[in-house]
């Protein structure tokens, strides 16, 4: 859902980054926010002195949105994965920008809504206690995110064990252990770049019943 804007707009607010270039750095004061026009951006954080990927953004996404309303230290480092084109706006221009482009204001609301849901969904994974369930819930989340998937049937998720570990907030070896275990039970099939899940519904049921018991 890339923003449809004319070239004049890009001339004025456009910025470009080469692969591996930092767009902004965790803890740097943030006064600008960005709309992604093209390219991929990796968001990483240093957690316990290790770099962890928390998200990858692409066309139509917004970046640095937490600084729209007030100056905030950046909560993550944004690194260009490939050649990236962004529209960059200073907070001071926000009102003018919204007045002139109410369409963009509306888009921001949608992006924020999704962001909040996604963040909550990820938090739900982290709040689970057993590593086995965390890993299952990561797969559930990924399955739910893709509206084209048929959850009644076997499905294939484009995800690596490393990414699963990162979503689950676990060490890679631990996540790998859980995945291997699930694959021995023939619940999933492991590939280097994807995971095939036999019955995602079963995982969903398990996770949701455990979640209900968590507070009772």
């Amino acid at each position: 859902m890339a923003m449809i804007l004319d070239d004049r707009f890009f001339d004025k607010f456009g910025v470009e980054y080469s692969p591996n270039e930092i767009i902004f750095c965790e803890f740097e004061p943030g006064n600008e926010f960005y709309f992604v026009q093209s390219g991929k951006i990796q968001l990483v954080k240093l957690i316990n002195n290790r770099e962890k990927t928390i998200d990858v953004l692409g066309d139509g996404d917004v970046l640095g949105e937490m600084s729209i309303l007030e100056e905030q230290p950046r909560s993550a480092t944004a690194i260009a994965v490939d050649h990236v084109k962004l529209l960059k706006f200073h907070r001071d221009n926000f009102d003018a920008l919204m007045q002139g482009n109410p369409q963009m204001a509306y888009k921001l609301l949608i992006i924020f809504s999704k962001r909040i849901y996604d963040a909550k969904r990820r938090l739900m994974i982290l709040l689970l206690e057993e590593p086995q369930l965390k890993v299952m819930d990561v797969l559930c989340m990924l399955a739910e995110e893709d509206p084209h998937l048929d959850l009644q049937n076997e499905l294939s998720l484009q995800v690596t064990p490393q990414q699963v570990a990162s979503w689950a907030g676990m060490a890679e070896v631990d996540a790998q252990k859980e995945l291997t275990h699930l694959s021995r039970l023939d619940k999933i099939e492991l590939y280097s770049d994807k995971i095939v899940v036999r019955k995602i519904r079963e995982f969903q049921r398990l996770v949701s019943s455990r979640r209900k018991k968590m507070f009772s």
């Binding site: 949105e65 937490m66 729209i68 309303l69 905030q72 009102d95 919204m98 007045q99 109410p102 369409q103 204001a105 509306y106 921001l108 609301l109 924020f112 809504s113 962001r115 909040i116 963040a119």
Partner: peptide, 20 residues
């Protein structure tokens, strides 16, 4: 919303607090 950008601004503030 397109007619009342101020409404958006208020909502964004609420949303951004929730995100934080």
């Amino acid at each position: 919303v397109l007619r009342n950008v101020n409404v958006v601004r208020k909502m964004l503030r609420v949303f951004s607090n929730q995100l934080r």
